[in-house]
Design a protein around this nucleic acid. Structure first.
Length: 675
DNA sequence: CTTCATACTTGCCGG
DNA sequence: AAGTATGAAG
């Protein structure tokens, strides 16, 4: 890494402020991560704070990893010893793992992902539908969202009933209550609980809070505009009276309102801490002026909590190129043509380029064309490693072994691979477990249940349970990865995969993922770090799942494909924003009130990713569900200063491009035939 | 009672 | 395109 220039005055101020809460308003590209890491170093070296009393909190594992890395670049390992750099959710898990007894949980609790939560809610709405004789299956996911929002907003169940106005919301409140009960019964917590439970605990048990306040005497929070109500409350409680709190944020980059983020938390600080010190970082070290000015002009259309003017000394730079395209295919060809042109003419590296879009599905066409043109790319998002069926299957076995109350895991596992235990047997099992208020696992070993089903079904369930119990026993003695291997072998998982996969290649790939888990388990076990038990390994993996959707193997010199959401915090010399059309950005469902502002901020985030070259494209015609629909360029394009943009009205196709296009066309046909 | 095959429907915001 | 409803066969 090149030697860093010294900090500017504002950055220095932020680093050295101590004694009262500090808000750093850090615009895009103003070096906020650097301020945090330098501040950590300053606290340790100059203010003589013990590293173990400092906690830096981020939102993603990636940000945490980067920050840890950068801190250890500055500090010796001795100085950094005991420093906490973690995500909100990992911190929550750390707290829960230590204090779960106060919360009424048992050891080996499971972390549910969205799918598991959905499963519970489906079960609940199903029994409800039976009782009310109405079919409520269609908005299960909607209900899950409402509940999640309440939890993020620190709305208790009682409060939810109070504020519920529509019948739908009242129903959601009822399900909220049963959902929470169910989680407890399964000895499980969901993603939102990772924040909510520590918060509840701290509110109820001041003596526990005090211990944690004593541990974390200096708090630093990154991406503060993304905090939700619970996260803010948690920060406030941990900060306590000592008030050594530094938060860094930018309300213009608040793009997570949909998952409960409250950018107002920034303004709230001033109310909550009258002696709040505010430092603005306005010098942008990333983009050239025309790009930055355009971003400023765009975001000026939003209301602001704090005014700030970003400026850059990197020179005027290139204009933003805006290229209208005839169709989606034309758009892909145009962008790839531009990419090859930059690569050929300017010797630009693919790793310096990014294609950014609003929604994940927009990557599909690009992937296909890039592949057929032999351009390496890395895709962030989509189905992550942990969302793959084979990974979830294996993890479900482990979850069940660690926590037999985990009905979601039980249901996933019981017929994967098929054990000839079908829907009606499971229905009876579910009913029995429900009546007795016990887990499916417990129910399946009871005589009462066996009597209700046919002898054959009972025997099948018995043998499964017998096998599981044996696993549970051996889980205490064998090494975690040996246990996983044993499971994979004994369920003949490879055969099962071959069976359900259409091609051998696919089965192989999926089996490779299974080996990856085994390997991972071994590594976690051998690395120790308190993750040696299966329960801890599972918890670790669940968190990876929840926070690490974008982990991709690092490929050399590959072009990046990701959503604008994912791109936040990153920068690239060459950026392509694609599909910048009405209904896409701004998204069709975000046209009302604040929705539009957030879409504008998203566009702002996209634009400010670019260092020197920004290209924006849109198509006039697109296929949707097989039908052709016409598209309008995004309204945000009109908000960019005209003199900063260069519109390509006619697309000039170069001979190379023509050739590339026809090549890609042929390759494309081949790719389609393969699929 | 379970499983497999086939046809049909709903669907693409974002972590 | 992926989940799911349906029906026939084991």
């Amino acid at each position: 890494m090149a030697p860093k220039p010294s900090l500017n005055e504002q950055q220095q101020q932020a680093v050295e402020h101590i004694g009262s809460p500090l808000l750093v308003l850090a615009g895009a590209g103003t070096g906020k991560t650097r301020v945090i890491t330098e501040k950590i170093a300053w606290l340790i070296r100059k203010a003589k704070v013990d590293a173990k009393n400092i906690a830096a909190i981020t939102f993603t594992n990636k940000a945490a990893r980067e920050m840890k890395q950068r801190a250890s670049d500055i500090l010796s390992s001795d100085e950094a010893k005991g420093l906490t750099v973690s995500t909100f959710h990992t911190l929550g898990l750390t707290i829960i793992r230590k204090e779960y007894k106060h919360l009424g949980y048992k050891a080996g609790f499971t972390i549910f992902d969205a799918q598991d939560s959905s499963t519970i809610i489906k079960e609940l709405t199903f029994s409800e539908a039976v009782a009310d004789n109405d079919d409520g299956s269609e908005n299960d996911d909607d209900i899950r969202w409402i509940i999640s929002r309440w939890k993020n907003d620190f709305v208790s169940i009682d409060k939810a009933f109070e504020i519920a106005t529509t019948a739908h919301e009242v129903r959601a409140a009822k399900l909220y209550r049963s959902y929470q009960r169910q989680l407890k019964a399964y000895n499980a917590i969901d993603f939102d609980d990772l924040i909510l439970l520590p918060l509840q605990l701290f509110k109820e048990k001041p003596e526990v809070l005090k211990e944690w306040q004593n541990k974390f005497r200096f708090l630093l929070v990154d991406e503060y505009q993304d905090t939700n109500v619970c996260q803010y409350e948690l920060v406030k409680l941990l900060t306590g009276l000592r008030k050594e709190l530094t938060v860094v944020g930018d309300d213009d980059q608040s793009i997570y309102a949909w998952r409960g983020a409250k950018p107002e938390n920034i303004a709230q600080l001033q109310t909550d801490y009258p002696n709040l010190k505010v430092v603005k970082l306005e010098q942008n070290y990333r983009s050239t002026s025309l790009i930055l000015e355009s971003a400023n002009a765009l975001i000026a259309n939003n209301d602001h909590l704090f005014e700030k003017k970003l400026w850059s000394s990197l020179g005027e730079g290139e204009k933003i190129r805006i290229i209208p395209c005839k169709s989606a295919d034309h758009e892909v060809e145009t962008v790839i043509g531009e990419i090859m042109k930059y690569n050929f003419r300017d010797k630009a590296k693919y790793q310096d380029m990014a294609i950014l879009y609003r929604s994940n599905y927009q990557s599909r066409l690009f992937e296909r064309y890039l592949r057929s043109n032999n351009i390496a790319y890395k895709l962030s998002g989509g189905t992550s490693f942990f969302e793959r069926a084979e990974v979830k299957d294996i993890l479900a076995y482990l979850r069940l072994i660690v926590n037999t109350s985990d009905d979601a895991a039980f249901l996933r596992v019981i017929n994967t691979p098929k054990r000839s235990i079908g829907a009606s047997t499971l229905e009876k099992l579910g009913n029995y477990a429900n009546e007795r208020q016990i887990s499916l696992f417990a129910a399946s070993q009871e005589m009462g249940f066996a009597q209700r089903v046919s002898g054959k079904a009972a025997a099948l369930v018995q043998s499964f349970i017998f096998w599981l119990n044996d696993l549970i026993v051996s889980s205490h003695e064998s090494k975690p990865h040996a246990l996983v291997e044993r499971i994979v072998t004994e369920i003949a998982y490879e055969d099962w995969l071959k069976n359900i996969c259409s091609s051998d290649k696919q089965a192989e790939q999926r089996m490779a993922n299974v080996y990856e888990i085994i390997d991972w388990t071994r590594r976690l076990y051998e690395d120790g770090e308190g993750k040696e038990t299966i329960a801890e390994i599972i918890a670790h993996m669940c968190l990876m799942d929840l926070l690490e959707r974008n982990q991709e193997e690092e490929e050399d010199n590959a072009i990046s494909l990701m959503t604008m959401h994912t791109a936040k915090g990153l920068e690239f010399p060459y950026v392509f924003l694609i599909g910048i059309e009405e209904e896409i950005l701004p998204h069709a469902n975000s046209m009302e009130e604040d929705g539009l502002d957030e879409e504008r901020r998203l566009a702002y985030v996209g634009i400010t990713r670019a260092k020197q070259h920004l290209t924006i494209t849109y198509a006039n015609v697109r296929n949707k569900y097989g039908e052709k629909i016409s598209c309008e360029p995004s309204r945000f394009l009109e908000e960019l200063p005209e003199q900063n943009c260069e519109w390509a009205d006619r697309v000039v196709v170069s001979p190379e491009q023509m050739q590339a296009t026809s090549q890609s066309y042929i390759a494309n046909l081949q790719a389609m035939l393969e699929d």
